[in-house]
Amino acid sequence: MKYALLVNGAPLDSQAARSALYFSQALLAREHQLLRVFFYGAGVQLGNGLQISAQDENSLLGEWQALALAGNTELVLCIAAAQRRGILSATEAQRHGKPPVEMLATGFTLAGLGTLVDAALDVDRLITFQG
């Protein structure tokens, strides 16, 4: 079956991104397709490429990036929710008169809520992970 996920919870303040990651790995193991993961609300914080995890902790971001490659899955941050929380690509930052710092983690894209709606129309199942 075709799946998409909506992740609303922040990576450190909730278990949403971690739970969604394990679910995604199990999806791929069961031969499902995971088309897109849409990060909304505080969930967009996962796509901040400047986050540093402690050496003795797993990198949640790194595991998501690996999953996206394995599943050919799009990782999309809601652009409005991301901007409000200061997560911008270098181009977006410049466009808003900020220093051109690339905040967006590799493998993530910024897009509007329309891509969530599209995903919901395209897939057999859309599963939400709340914060």
Partner: peptide, 19 residues
């Protein structure tokens, strides 16, 4: 249930609500 069981539940139920 394990993660695979979670996936199986979403296969069985066409609808879900995450509260």
């Amino acid at each position: 249930i394990d993660d695979a069981g979670f996936v199986a539940l979403t296969e069985q139920h066409t609808q879900s609500i995450s509260w």
